Simulated assay, not measured.
Amino acid sequence: MSQDTNWQQQAWQQPATPPSQPPVYYYGAPQPQPPKKSRGWIVGLAVVLCLFGLIALSMWSCTSVVSSSFDSITPGSTSVDLGSLSSDAIAVIDIDGTIQYDGTTASPEGLKAQLDRAEKSFYVKAVVLRINSGGGTATAGEEMAAYVREFSENSGKPVVVSSASINASAAYEISSQADYIFTAKTTAIGSIGTAMQVTDLSGLMEKLGISVENITSSDSKDSSYGTRALTEEERAYYQKMVDQINETFIQTVAEGRDMSVEDVRKLATGLTFTGMEAVENGLADEIGTKEDAVAKAAELAGTSTTKTVDLRPSTSNLSELLNLMSSSRVSVDDVTKALKELDNDGSLAR
């Protein structure tokens, strides 16, 4: 791993989340097979032909499903496509989990895609970011904060943040660019700070009798490999980088919250505040729920609507259909039922 590549893993106050364990698959006990019938292959062939016929007849519906975005109105309403809106609505975008490059709305590309959709929609009058994240990769947070700021400036549509249990580090950097921030009293919010982690495994490897020799083009090229301790010069170099990156974090928050750099720097302890403290020190505006955030967004947009539409990355129900067909226990009736549901409302029952 190069020094540059390792630096991409540094995060606002939160080390990268370790990879999750792979799923464990269990195979069921073998099922007794019925005696073979002399003409069973004919029945099987007929079933296969009927199945492919059903798929062909509904292909237009599957194609429509793949290309649509499957936006959904809040509970109590029916699912609709964003393009079918005929009255004002507030778009809600969930930013949940580690801020990183994974294509979800907790990533730059995922968030921007949904903000672009909100900007293009005439009936979307404002955006609520529902945030529940402890931070993540610094660069991803920087880009997402810029996208929120650009959306608000270019579209003229207000952005309001609704903080869930945690809104910290890179997630808070993103939030700071909104027009208004709601938090719960017990939300852990803030944590303005930058961290980089370098692990030294040389002592353990020595005890295990493992010898690693790094052949590098420069003395510090292997500084982040974990096979030796950092030199004092390297430690000072990395500290300077962390301080420089953290300064951009502080300036971004200061600009977004209309605070002085010095005031934000005093709050940049790397620790979170309760929602109550955040309202007092200026990192948040008001204690409130998601519904309060929606109402505020409508107020800032000059509309009386409280209707919301959830914006999320597109999902392909055709893939779900194929997964269903690949199941060893699926029947022709199951596939027929799924195709009918797909044709009726674009969703598959589970």
Rank of each mutant, 00 (worst) to 15 (best):
A146P: 04
E153N: 15
F151P: 13
F151Q: 06
I189C: 02
S162T: 06
A164C: 09
R149Q: 12
V161K: 09
Y147R: 01
V160D: 05
V161S: 09
N167I: 07
Y172D: 07
A168L: 13
S162R: 04
A168H: 03
N167G: 08
A188Y: 12
V159W: 13
R149S: 15
V148R: 04
Y147N: 04
S152A: 15
I174N: 09
N154C: 12
V161L: 13
N154M: 14
S152I: 13
I181E: 01
I189R: 03
A178C: 09
T186G: 11
A164H: 09
S163M: 08
I166D: 02
K185S: 15
S169Y: 07
I181T: 09
A188S: 11
K157R: 05
N154K: 13
D179M: 10
S169M: 02
A188W: 04
F151A: 04
S163Q: 10
Y180R: 03
F182L: 10
G190L: 03
Y180A: 02
S163C: 14
T183N: 03
Y147M: 02
D179K: 08
E150K: 06
V160G: 07
A178M: 13
A168Y: 07
R149K: 11
Q177M: 14
F182M: 06
V159C: 09
V161A: 02
N167Y: 11
A188P: 00
Y172G: 01
E150F: 05
A178N: 13
V161Y: 05
N167S: 01
S155N: 07
V148D: 10
K157F: 12
S175H: 03
S162F: 01
A171C: 02
S175P: 00
I174K: 02
Y147T: 14
S152Y: 12
F182Q: 01
F182T: 14
E150P: 01
Y172L: 00
I166M: 14
R149D: 15
V161G: 06
V161R: 06
T187H: 12
I174D: 10
T186C: 05
G190H: 00
F182G: 09
V159Q: 12
A170Y: 01
Q177N: 03
K185L: 10
A146Y: 07
A184C: 07
F182A: 11
S163H: 08
S155A: 07
I166A: 11
V161W: 06
F182W: 00
K185C: 02
R149N: 13
S152G: 12
S152L: 01
A188E: 03
A171Y: 11
F151N: 01
A146G: 06
V159A: 14
T187R: 03
S175W: 05
A164P: 12
I181F: 04
S175V: 07
Y180T: 08
A164E: 06
V159R: 08
I174M: 08
E150Q: 11
N154V: 15
A171H: 15
G190V: 09
E153T: 05
V159I: 11
T183S: 08
V161M: 10
E173G: 03
E173M: 15
V148Q: 08
G190W: 04
K157N: 00
G190T: 06
N167Q: 10
V161T: 07
A188V: 09
Y147W: 07
V148F: 10
N167K: 00
V160F: 11
F151S: 00
A178W: 01
V160Q: 03
P158I: 14
D179W: 08
T187M: 04
